[in-house]
Structure formats: C-alpha cells, structure tokens
Amino acid sequence: MTNEADRSPEAPPFWSELKLPSLLYTEGVQKLHAAIESEWDPLLRSACQTAAGRALWKHVTNDMLAELLAGETQLTRFYQKIQKDCFNQAREVSGVILAVRTLWFDSKLEAAVSLLNNQEVLQVVLLGAGMDTRAYRLNCLSNSHVFEVDFPQVLQMKASLLQEATVPRVEQQVMEMKAKMLSRVEADIRGHDWLEKLKTSGFVPEKNTVWILEGILYYLSSCDAIHVLKTIAAYSTLTKTVVLADFMNKPSTMLSNSTFQFYCDWPDELLPSLGFSDVKLSQIGDPDAQFGLLNDPLNMFNKLRTIPRSVDVDPENGTPCCRLYLVQATGSPSRTS
C-alpha cells in the first residue's frame, strides 16, 4: 500500500476538501483570530499566512499546530489558491515553495544539530520566528534551547493560541514540547537592542549556536538586514556557528512593492565578506531543495536553474527570473571577520 506522504502532492485527495479542526471554532480561538484580522498589519499577518501554507502542506511538513496558528480566514484563502491551481493543472501548486523551504530548513537544522551537539545544550535562535512550531515538532531539538525572537504582539498571540490547545477536549491531540527549553524573546530585530534582550533571556554568546533566518531578511531594509548578519558574524568568532537563511533576488522583491525590501543576488559572496565561511547555496529544485515535490520537468523552478543567475529576465518569454536562494554558512573561533 502506498504511503500517503509518498504520493504526488499535486493530486487528490490532499486538497479535494478543506477540513478544519474543531478547535478553530472554539470561542477562545475565534476571538484571538478575529483580533489578528482586525488589528494586525500585513507584515504581522504574514506569520499566519506562512502557517496556513505549512498547514495545507502538512502531509510533507508534518506541522500539526499550523492550522491553529493560521486561523480559518488564512487557511480558506490559501486553500482557494491551491484549488485554482489544481483546476488549471498548474505545474507548480501554491505553497510548494513554502513546503520546500520548510523541509530544507528542517533538514539543514537537523544536520547542524548533529554536527554541533555535545554535552552542552545547543542554542537554536529563530529570528522573526512568527508562528514557527519547530520547538514542538522536531525531535532533533531534544537537547537544544530554542529562542524565538519576534514582535511582542506576535509572540503573545502565539502563546495564547497554543494555550487554547492545552485545554482538555475530546479527541484532541496532546501538544508536546520537543525542544529541551523554549524562550520567547519580544524584540524588533530592526532595532539595535534585540541582542541584549536575547542575552537577558538566557542566550550565551560562547555556546554553539544555530541561527535560523527563514522568511525574514527580505522584509528588512538593506541597512537592517546587513546589521543583523554582521551581528551574527561577530559572534561566530566566539563559538561554532551555523547560519541558515533564505534570500530573494531583486526581481522577487518586485512581487510585493509594499512589503519586500532587502534583496541579494549573490548571497554566497555577501556572507564571506561579512566573516562567514563554507557558504553553500541552493535554489528551489536543486537536489537538496526539492524533496520530491517538483516532479514536472517543465516546472518553472527547474527552468530557472538552467538560466544564469546574472540574468534577471527569461530570454524566451520575457518574464522576471524570481529566485529564492537557500543558504547555509558557518563560522568558528578560528576565523576572524
């Protein structure tokens, strides 16, 4: 019998019907999500949009808390996009980039934990954590202290939603922490005090650390993005460090004129200039960044991989070459910036 996770995600039954958990219709959860929809700006709501994508691709992301954190409105909107793609027999279903990105970060984080873990507790810092649930779903974090850094209203809302999941109800999955420790750090990484707040929450610069910057850098100004990367690079001279980040190229930021700011066409050159070493870059569709989700050989991601990175416009059809780079870099006390 074929395992459901091994089947093509572009076909039924995954998206034949949107089935939402009963927890979303409880009074407490509905009030919290109503506040999100009425009070949060687009930047803050992007955390719930990301959770919706992970929820609807949970047959590969295994994110069982994502539905709760996304909410009915965002789940319905994302589902409608997927249904439209399936109806039109699109080569790339909405959310596939998000699913691949999630799996890439998960796999690289697991490898980094295996590399850096020793007798001491490993530190894992998620900048712009949003509605991330890795502390609850990745077994590899059992000897890790996870720090989630984000705006106060995001982390407070996340904590309130997760609290609703702990209320005893019939036929409800028990929420279990996988990480050894979890600290939520209320800070705006666009400011210059987030590192001090991180230290106050228990972060020790001299301990081995994995930094995760998933879906965050392009929301920052160029100045703020470089400052964040330089800050991490400076501390990589104190201890073994792994940085996992994704970068948009310039055409990608044009997709949302009001939201995306920072871009980098050559992150594998930028990071060494800041002090990182052993930089490895992947594009969606590369052997380590497709996870069996891009089976159509004519999908746009495979085509992009055949076009030189210096080219911004597809020479065949004139469409922008929108790229997302997945980058892993390391640092150690033996290398100075």
Score class of each variant (00 low, 15 high):
Asp106Tyr: 05
Leu43Gly: 03
Glu37Asn: 10
Leu155Tyr: 02
Arg169Cys: 06
Met175His: 04
Ser160Gly: 02
Val167Gly: 07
Phe87His: 08
Met131Leu: 12
Val121Ile: 13
Phe87Thr: 10
Asp63Lys: 04
Leu138Glu: 02
Ile97Ser: 14
Met175Tyr: 03
Leu116Ser: 07
Leu43Asp: 04
Lys84Val: 02
Leu122Tyr: 04
Val174Met: 09
Gln49Pro: 01
Leu75Asn: 10
Thr166Cys: 02
Trp104Ile: 03
Asp132Arg: 06
Val167Tyr: 08
Gln49Thr: 12
Arg54Ser: 08
Asp41Gln: 13
Glu72Arg: 15
Pro42Gly: 08
Met131Glu: 07
Leu65Val: 11
Met157Arg: 12
Ala135Ser: 15
Val124Gly: 01
Lys158Val: 00
Gln163Val: 01
Thr73Arg: 13
Met157Trp: 13
Ala55Arg: 04
Met175Gly: 04
Asp132Thr: 12
Ala70Glu: 00
Ala111Ile: 02
Thr102Gly: 10
Ile82Leu: 04
Thr61Gly: 06
Arg101Pro: 11
Gly53His: 04
Ile36Gln: 10
Gln163Asn: 09
Ser107Ile: 05
Gln80Tyr: 00
Gly71His: 08
Asp132Cys: 06
Gln74Trp: 07
Asp85Gly: 11
Leu56Cys: 06
Asn117Cys: 08
Glu171Lys: 11
Glu110Leu: 08
His59Met: 10
Leu43Pro: 01
Val100Gln: 08
Leu68Met: 09
Leu141Asp: 14
Arg54Phe: 06
Thr73Met: 05
Gln163Phe: 00
Asn88Pro: 00
Val121Glu: 15
Gly130Ile: 14
Met131His: 12
Glu72Trp: 02
Leu155Ala: 00
Met177Lys: 09
Val170Asp: 07
Asp63Ser: 11
Ala55Cys: 03
Leu68Gly: 08
Thr50Gln: 03
Val93Lys: 09
Ile82Ser: 09
Glu164Ser: 04
His59Pro: 00
His59Val: 10
Cys48Arg: 11
Glu110His: 02
Phe151Pro: 01
His59Leu: 13
Ala51Arg: 01
Thr76Lys: 14
Ser94Lys: 10
Glu67Gln: 15
Ala51Tyr: 04
Arg101Gln: 12
Leu75Ser: 09
Thr73Cys: 08
Gly130Gln: 06
Ala135Arg: 15
Arg54Trp: 10
Ala35Gln: 12
Lys108Leu: 13
Phe105Glu: 00
Leu103Met: 11
Val146Asn: 03
Gln119Phe: 03
Leu103Trp: 04
His145Pro: 10
Pro152Leu: 01
Lys158His: 01
Ala51Ile: 02
Ala51Thr: 06
Gly130Glu: 13
Ser46Glu: 06
Glu72Asn: 12
Ala112Arg: 07
Lys81Asp: 13
Ala111Asp: 10
Gln172Asn: 03
Arg45Trp: 09
Glu120Asp: 14
Asn118Gly: 14
Ser160Phe: 04
Ser38Val: 05
Ala55Pro: 07
Met131Asn: 12
Asn139Tyr: 13
Cys86Arg: 14
Val93Thr: 09
Ala35Met: 11
Ala35His: 15
Leu44Ser: 14
